[in-house]
């Protein structure tokens, strides 16, 4: 079972990335849950969602102590980093945040998600950069499933699909570099 907390600012694609992850898990025949946290505002504000991918039925859908935190901006990083499970993983968007955390029992990956997304063709694909990094580090779902989901989601929007695939690949490459 892997509990992932995705957080950022409204509009950064936090919720859609989480939903994607859940879809991929479902495609692989796993148990999944996706729980968005919502506020009163329709635009902006903070956004986060909890995604659990598991081999066994999921009891609580909450990620109060996530195994992985994906933080797309600095406030989310600082807010949620202390909650990550011991030995857990933090992926932080280095384009918009520092990556200093006052604990040494977690692994922190600094990923320049916005920069890599712009290189891929659209800053809005920063969420996919993070998703790529997550897949590479945790193997929570297969790379192949993610690509399939992207193809399905952006059917008839070849350009958008390609941008997202490039961003996803950039995320994979970014963590491979850091691992070495």
């Amino acid at each position: 079972m892997l509990k992932v907390l995705l957080a950022g600012q409204g509009g950064q694609g936090v919720l859609s990335a989480g939903r994607f992850l859940a879809e991929c898990g479902l495609h692989e025949g796993k148990e999944v849950s996706y729980l968005p946290a919502y506020g009163p505002e329709m635009r902006g504000g903070t956004a986060n969602c909890s995604v659990i991918v598991s081999e066994k039925p999921i009891a609580s859908p909450l990620c109060t102590v996530p195994d992985v935190l994906i933080a797309l901006n600095a406030p989310s990083f600082h807010k949620f980093a202390p909650r990550v499970a011991k030995g857990g993983l933090i992926l932080v968007n280095g384009s918009l945040s520092d990556c200093y955390v006052e604990r040494d029992d977690v692994r922190v990956y600094d990923i320049l998600a916005n920069d890599l997304a712009m290189e891929a063709g659209d800053i809005r694909s920063a969420n996919m950069v993070m998703a790529g990094a997550l897949c590479e580090l945790t193997k929570v779902v297969k790379e192949r499933s993610f690509i399939n989901c992207l193809n399905e989601k952006f059917i008839g929007k070849a350009h958008v699909c390609e941008v997202n695939k490039r961003a996803f690949a950039a995320g994979i490459a970014a963590v491979k570099e850091q691992k070495n």
Binding site: A22, Y34, L35
Partner: peptide, 9 residues
Amino acid sequence: GMIGQLMEP
């Protein structure tokens, strides 16, 4: 409210 927002298979 959680049931309303939760997504599951």
